[in-house]
Nucleic acid binder design. Structure first.
Lengths: 330, 330
DNA sequence: CTTATTAAAGAATATATATTCAGGAACAGG
DNA sequence: CCTGTTCCTGAATATATATTCTTTAATAAG
């Protein structure tokens, strides 16, 4: 019976503290007990579930999917964005916005940011950065050489340069092909002092921003400006490759898939990425689910920004998200 | 759109703080923002009602009735106890228990406690005090002389003495009649050095514990050991008197009701009670509702301990309490 | 193109809260 | 009737949190 009286007092203390917003010392004085006791009572109130705290996720946020992603793939953070339709265009736009906000909010001074230049999602991110909202970064480092068509290279250069301007950082471009014609050609390029200088920054990158690519010959070949032959791609898929970031290929379990191609890539290595403090991946869309899953299994990625549809596929919660869900195979 | 991204971040911060129990600085480090920002985000989360805190009153407690009592009568605190049946015996027992716990929990060292000796509810309180749980008080002061029958006087003395022992205090008895035969008889008693000594403590009382009495001739006369005549009581009721504490009579609005009787009472005055830091009243039961209402209106009482039925009557919430409610006139 | 004004953020700091510590009492087992 | 043990306090203190202050930059008005 006196337990009830004790709980009543605790409930009253909790009421004064949480609902009336009074200070503990004020409550203590009011009830002629010590502040320490009030603090202990409040702790007990939590334990006894006399106070219950609920987080109401704002509509359009997917706290649960984010939690599942974090737990399942050991991510440091996950951001799942609302997206009305499961179309790549819309998805990339939403992810880009979220990534831009994330960058604005959490960018620290003097960071060295590595960017794998030619992902469309990253482009969307850059387009959405509010100039001045992001604090000063030090360098924006291009972590992968350009691809084929000089026009595309220009885009990459512009993306890096623009991001550098937005963050007040110095751009460090990688004036080289992403994929050299041969191992020898790669060595030649590496001997270029400018290339070297940029690549020497790779181990100093504090924040890497990656796109994740799938390996469907069609898009891959197109994107790469026909640097790869169909045969080379088949080598990758034959070895189990399901996707890549910065042209580091991996299989479903996230294991590195090494092919002759690997030796020709000029860009940041998986090992170097593993050393980076924060690796952020931006990716979403039906076709990429498998690639993303593999990427997450590499353990390289700290933070994933994706859309709700992809998040649902990745967590096996296809049927639990609000709104229409397609039962696309994963 | 970026507002959503901001809210998402806030929700995540709230989640980490409230659900995962992480420190703000930890969260700040995790998200690469300053602790100050986390603090601000958490405040915003409250404002935006992303975090909702609820106090779940333990079953058997009546937070709502307590709030209403506090608000309606300007009480510092109110305690409403559970009580299965609306019977005076059960009610007094429950109130006594609650009062005992209250005293144990909130008694400070070196307090001077005034007790109006002959209320049965107070007796129940004393019976329920856990020896040693209450900290040391200084004096237990009897604030009203004994009533009629010497046997009853003995009870009063025992109550005071016992409470004194339980709290490690020194008992200060009022060796006098509660109601003198005449004004002259009162003056005689007041000249007694022991009586004087105790009464000199009245202004120094830091905590007064009162019972509240109604004025039905039957019980009142019985209780008083026929000190009052029916006529005297009629004087009181004719003047609008509805109740008393420490034989200070008042009407429905809490105004003092002064009759010739008043000059014969030997006990603490209403004015002296008004000066006391904490005045606790213990009272409940159908028959006393009106008296309690008047008592609360005097403004003398800081804290009321009562039962749920009485509380409901006092707040006009007869129909809103859980369980059976009698529609007794108030 | 200036010059207020506002907003937002982190560093420094003030304030509030949690925890450690020491003391006292109850209890159990010698 | 003693211990040793546990539990419970409040005082002192360590720690965490809120706020102030200052800087920076954006926006609006002149």
């Amino acid at each position: 019976m006196s337990r009830l009286n004790e709980l009543r007092l605790i409930a009253r203390v909790a009421q004064m503290y949480h609902l009336e917003g009074r200070r503990q010392s004020d409550i203590a004085q009011h009830l002629r007990i010590s502040q320490a006791t009030v603090s202990r009572m409040l702790k007990k109130a939590q334990q006894e579930e006399i106070v219950r705290t609920t987080i109401v996720a704002p509509p359009g946020t997917y706290t649960d999917l984010e939690s599942k992603l974090r737990e399942r793939y050991g991510l440091s953070e996950a951001i799942v964005v609302e997206c009305s339709e499961d179309r790549d265009g819309a998805i990339m736009a939403r992810i880009g916005e979220a990534a831009a906000h994330f960058l604005e909010a959490t960018l620290q001074s003097d960071e060295i940011i590595g960017v794998s230049s030619w992902s469309e999602t990253i482009l969307k991110m850059v387009q959405n950065i509010d100039p001045g909202k992001a604090s000063k970064a030090k360098y924006i480092v291009q972590t992968l050489g350009g691809m084929g068509d000089p026009a595309v290279q220009t885009h990459a250069t512009q993306l890096i340069t623009r991001l550098a301007r937005l963050t007040g950082a110095e751009p460090r471009l990688l004036a080289a092909q992403g994929v050299a014609q041969s191992r020898e050609a790669k060595l030649v390029m590496l001997s270029d002092p400018y290339v070297r200088e940029t690549m020497d920054l790779f181990p100093k990158i504090t924040l890497a921003i990656l796109g994740i690519g799938g390996i469907e010959p069609s898009s891959m070949l197109a994107r790469s400006g026909n640097v790869f032959s169909s045969n080379e791609l088949r080598d990758v898929t034959d070895a189990g490759g399901v996707g890549e970031f910065s042209l580091c290929f991996f299989d479903t379990e996230g294991r590195t898939v090494k092919t002759p191609l690997s030796d020709r890539v000029i860009g940041v290595s998986r090992e170097e990425l593993g050393q980076v403090e924060r690796v952020v991946a931006l990716a979403g869309g039906q076709s990429k689910a498998n690639a993303i899953r593999g990427a997450l299994c590499t353990g390289v990625i700290d933070l994933l920004i994706t859309d709700k549809f992809t998040a649902a596929r990745l967590t096996g919660a296809e049927n639990s998200i609000v709104g229409e869900v397609e039962d696309e195979a994963v």
